[in-house]
């Protein structure tokens, strides 16, 4: 008898990378690589998801993630419908439950949700029969960001991250990007370090599978890549930092500091960047910066995610 070794995607939703096995992650990233090829063609459209409908429900501001999902859906010929908080019933006080059920009544195949409440995507996933993609929920998770980060690193490092170390720098406590990246990078064999002032580190971080630093110079020593996180200005207003100038003095990724990492160490940033605050202007645009590769990887990865969910 012939052994059936075809890979089977078994998830209704993509809520966080923590639901993925190594096999899921590898398959998804391989699939994204094949979609990346489509994105380089003169005619960047395939009929794969023709007739499928995808709702982009962004209850929190977003430019790149929303555009990226929109382009990803359209390149696969799905119909995408964008909905934002302003101009929707959420502003009229409609509950997430009612908005979700209303959208479901229009029978979409996938709803992509961005929401300021941690757990909002999981709430919709339990409520609705269609597939839910978490495009960022509060401080909790941002699985497609983690996937596109690993995709970008894979293009440089190859499929195995064994022996590599990556530093995530900045506001870890309030970062869904940090949480999702920690899990996925560990899954792919990469060691992770976190660095930031204690006021921006989450409770219980001692139990996480990472090394924790408050000193940026120590943290950068010998790393293969550094991911800077956006500093939200409201952290200073909440009293977690004295002022932004001091933050940039202590934690901005400068050329001098990057020189402490391994030669050729890569630089990532999920965007949007505060140039001069968490990342020096010259670093953002240096040859080792993957910032724009991350953006193009985003389209390919989201094509893979939408494909797997809409055709399951």
């Amino acid at each position: 008898m012939e052994k059936d070794n075809r890979y089977l995607w078994k998830h209704k939703d993509l809520l966080d990378v923590t639901q993925l096995s190594r096999e899921d992650a590898d398959h998804l990233l391989d699939l994204a690589a094949s979609f990346q090829e489509i994105n380089r063609r003169p005619v960047k459209k395939v009929p794969t998801l023709k007739g499928k409908s995808i709702i982009l429900f962004f209850a929190e501001n977003s430019t790149r993630t929303k555009t990226s999902f929109d382009i990803a859906g359209k390149r696969l010929s799905a119909d995408t419908h964008a909905l934002s908080k302003s101009g929707s019933s959420i502003n009229k006080g409609e509950s997430l439950k009612d908005t979700g059920q209303t959208l479901m009544a229009m029978n979409p195949d996938v709803i992509v949700i961005r929401h300021s409440s941690s757990g909002a995507a999981e709430y919709l996933a339990k409520l609705l029969p269609c597939s839910i993609v978490n495009a960022g929920d509060g401080w909790h998770a941002h699985p497609t960001q983690a996937l596109l980060d690993s995709f970008s690193l894979r293009q440089v490092w190859g499929p195995s991250f064994e022996g590599k170390t990556l530093l995530i720098l900045g506001d870890i406590a309030h970062s869904r990007v940090a949480r999702s990246n920690l899990y996925l990078l560990n899954l792919l064999g990469c060691k992770v370090r976190f660095c930031g002032p204690s006021t921006l580190l989450p409770p219980g971080i001692d139990g996480w599978n990472c090394e924790v630093y408050t000193d940026i110079e120590e943290a950068l020593k010998g790393v293969d890549a550094c991911m800077c996180l956006r500093l939200q200005l409201e952290r200073q207003e909440a009293g977690l930092l004295p002022d932004l100038l001091e933050y940039s003095r202590r934690y901005c990724l400068t050329r001098e500091r990057l020189n402490l990492a391994k030669p050729g160490a890569k630089v990532l940033h999920p965007g949007p960047m505060n140039r001069g605050l968490e990342i020096a202007d010259e670093i953002a645009d240096c040859p080792d910066s993957l910032v724009l590769d991350q953006v193009s990887a985003g389209v390919a990865v989201r094509m893979a995610v939408l494909y797997l969910l809409a055709t399951r």
Binding site: G138, H140, P202, G204
Partner: peptide, 8 residues
Amino acid sequence: AVSGELGV
């Protein structure tokens, strides 16, 4: 630990 993991 739980609030840290959940991000709340």
